[in-house]
Amino acid sequence: MKKVYEPLKPGRKWFKELVAHVVFFVLGRAFQSAAKLDAGIRREVAEWEEGFTLAMCILPKGPSMLLKKVDGRIRYAGWAKEDADLIIRFKNIESAFLVLTPQMGSARAFAENRLSLVGDVARSMSFVRCLDRLLAYLYPAFICRPLVKRMPPVLRPIRRRLYIYTLGIPFGL
């Protein structure tokens, strides 16, 4: 009997997509909150122009998040439905899962070409510095240390972690 060759539609990685959705939400809200608390992030964000938008997304049409500078402050604006000034794109869901879970830091992810950048490279350096500081609040040192080149010197990490997890992420404060 002659074998029939037909198109195949690969299934979706639902679990990893779900995790990515959740982590993007957590990351977005946590960034918004940490940008209020941390002087280092505030200084960086102050240099970004008003209305500046930054998106992180998973190619081709996966989960995403959008950050926007409004009235001098950074705001989590949900999914990245529009084009942004700076877009950090994970090339596939597996790479995104590694970074978001967090098993791999941003520098290594860039070094391994797992991310592609669209937009101003200088601005992305500023964002990565913010991200490193955010990680120091989100995770204890033993998790954060392998993700960054050097632990950022943050003040009151435990108190601020508590604030971010109890008020920042759930209520956007």
Partner: peptide, 13 residues
């Protein structure tokens, strides 16, 4: 210098 993209791949912060 700290905003230069080349710094991303430097092994030490």
């Amino acid at each position: 210098a700290i905003n230069d993209g080349a710094l991303m791949m430097n092994p030490r912060e």
